[in-house]
Each structure stands twice: as structure tokens, then as C-alpha cells.
Amino acid sequence: MQLMVESSQLAPAFNSPPLSNVDVNLFESTIRILGGLLSTYHLTGDQLFLEKAKDIGSRLMPAFKTPSKIPYSDVNIGKGTAHPPRWTSDSTLAEVTSIQLEFRELSRLTQEPHYQVRTQGGLVHKLPGKHDGLVPMFINTNSGQFTHKGVFTLGARADSYYEYLLKQWIQGGKTEDDLLEDYLQAVEGVKKHLLRQTGPSRLTFVGELSHNRFNPKMDHLVCFLPGTLALGAHNGLPGDHMDLALQLMETCHQMYAQMETGLSPEIAHFNLQARDGRDPADRHNLLRPETVESLFYMYRFTKDTKYRDWGWDILQSFNKYTKVQRSHRPDMESFFLGETLKYLYLLFSDDMELLSLDKYVFNTEAHPLPIWPSPPK
């Protein structure tokens, strides 16, 4: 991949005055800014991007100055202070366990171990409150313990925890047994507690569990799972992971195909009884990447062109229903450019080795990072 912009063109923005009194979210800044800088450094070899990665990484470190080492959600990158949200002392599971790929890579490149030690995901490995590998959605920054126990989802606030278990294991050369153990247990927990099928169409979906009560609700965010399962199977994990990936990929496709616009709702409720179909809950589409992300993985591993066809249908629906000259909502989520369009580009590329999945692991914002032990530049 050849980047069409030179780093010198970006220098004015990087050389702007020092930041002061600016609060940023630790998780979002890590996956977007730190991950993006590290990825660009590897793709260009330009030292500038590593220097800026180290700068933002250092600015984010105050988040880890908590009694439990579970990080706060927000950091003032000018003042060097951090704090939880105004309404709680909890952090979400995804926020604290989906920053490791980036900080581990920063530590490896700079040879400064404190970046990795302070952000290691092992903090939750042995915590009580898990349910057959499934993990509660919130964790307290003071006690370091799970809160809101008994509620389990692979959707918002939890999704990338499961993704990063597998991807850290791959990133590190498949040597960290705790990560693999937690991932395998989680997949079994999903199959045991969250997996159901609809009525006549027999679509397989992943619901939610609240104090042993099943809710047939599936966020679009959960459509990351087919791609993650396929990635695991590609790296030697059990074959039934791929079987499940194929089933869930069909469901995520149907979440688009069965809608009048060809665009998935943000949330779908599935029917467990004889009546077929599913009812959309949040009737809007945010141009999220999860389904096209999984289509990319499925096409890479199976070479079945139907996954390209499904991706093309989604792109056509984006063009028809969301491309506007003057929007009713005057903003666009950054993940549409950073993830959705990137995965579509890779899906349609004829170069199957472009950003090879045997050489790179993608962070949860679609920034490719090298699989170790590739030596740092």
C-alpha cells in the first residue's frame, strides 16, 4: 500500500502549540490516534510518526494513576490529569481491555516497558464475576472489581474485549496462554449462553444475558464476531469456530438484506417463535464497519465471492440512502472513513496479500499493526 501523502505535509498540524485543558477519552484516543500513528509509521518508515505516537502515548499515561491500576476513562492531555466520567467511578470493559495492542506495540518499538506494564489486560484475567468466560460490562477504577454483575453482552461496552484477547495472542506470536485460554472460554460461553436460532429461517444470532434472563437483542456491533472467529480458525483454533462464523455472517448479511433500505438497524430483536423475521429496535444506521469488516475476513479466508457481492450491496445502499449534499445530521462518524471504507477497499482489492493477515493484526479501529517478532525499524 502506497500512501499518497508525505509526512512533511502534516508537519504544520503536528507542530501546533502545546495542548492545554483538553479532555480526551483514553480508549478512543488510543485506538484512533495512537493506533493510527503506529500503523502509519510501519507503512511509511517515517520516524516522525513514531515520535508522535510516543508523545500521545505519554500524554495518555496519567489515566493509569488509579488505586486499582484500572484506568480512568478520560485524560486531560495538556494538564496531565485524569478522571472517571462525572456520573460514575466505573470504566467500561471495552475501554480498559482494548488498548493493549497499541500500547504493547509502542513499548516494543521504544523499548520502554512501562507502556506495556501499565496497560496489560491481565488485570481482569482472574477477577471473580466471569460466567463461563463471559465478562460483566463495567469495572470499578477504585476497587478493580467488576460491577453490574450478571449482565453479559458482546455488544456495546464489551465487544472489543473479546476481540483483543485473540488479537493480542496473535500479535505476540501465539505465546501468551492466558489470552488464548480466556478467548476459548469466552467462545464456549457464547455458545452455551448467548447463541440462539430464529424461527423458520433458522438464523443463528448472539443475544444478551441479564441475571440468567435471555434477551434476543443483537447490536450491529456484534457483527465483528464472524470475522474474529474466522481469524482464530485461520490461526489454528477449532474448526467449529469457522462453522459458527459462517452462520453468523449469514445473519449479519440478512440484517442488511431484509431491510427496505438495505441498511442494517443499529440494534435488531430476533423472533424465537414460528413467526419469521426480526424487528429493528434503533431504526438508524451509523455506517458502522463491523459487518464489512467480517466480510473482509471471510473473503480472505474462503475466497467465496458472495462476500464481495454482499459488501457491494452494502456500498450501493450507503450511496443511495446516506450520501447527501446537506445532511439532516451535520456530522459523520470517523469510523466510516477509518474502518468501513478501508475494509470495503480491502474486500474489493484483487491483491489478496495487501496487508496480509499473516503479517498484520488490525486493531479495533482497522489500523494494521505487525505481528511479532517482526523487528522494529
Score class of each variant (00 low, 15 high):
E250Y: 14
S210H: 06
L369E: 05
V206S: 03
Y360L: 04
F49L: 09
E260L: 07
S160Q: 08
Q111M: 07
T198C: 02
S16P: 04
R283Q: 09
H193D: 07
A11M: 14
S294L: 09
L194R: 03
V135C: 00
E293P: 01
H328T: 11
A186S: 15
H220M: 06
L221C: 04
F296S: 03
D309M: 11
V324S: 07
A156M: 04
G239N: 07
N142W: 00
R308K: 14
C252S: 00
G262T: 10
M259V: 01
S91F: 06
K65G: 08
D159H: 11
E176D: 14
I33F: 07
T147H: 03
P368F: 05
K342W: 06
Y115D: 07
K377N: 08
T30Y: 04
L355A: 12
H42G: 02
S98D: 00
L229D: 03
S374W: 00
I56Q: 00
S16M: 14
A186Q: 12
L229T: 04
F335D: 06
A53M: 11
D358P: 07
S16A: 15
G311W: 07
R202Q: 12
R157D: 09
L346K: 04
P12V: 12
S327F: 13
R59L: 09
S29W: 02
L123C: 10
K306M: 15
I371E: 03
N76Y: 10
L38M: 15
K320F: 08
G173D: 07
L237A: 12
D159W: 10
M255W: 01
V124G: 01
L154Q: 07
K217N: 00
L50H: 09
A13G: 02
P113Q: 06
P265I: 00
M61R: 01
E105C: 05
E51C: 02
L341H: 00
P238D: 00
S68P: 14
F335M: 05
Q247T: 10
D177H: 11
I314K: 02
P12I: 13
S39K: 02
M137D: 05
K167S: 09
M137P: 02
L225P: 07
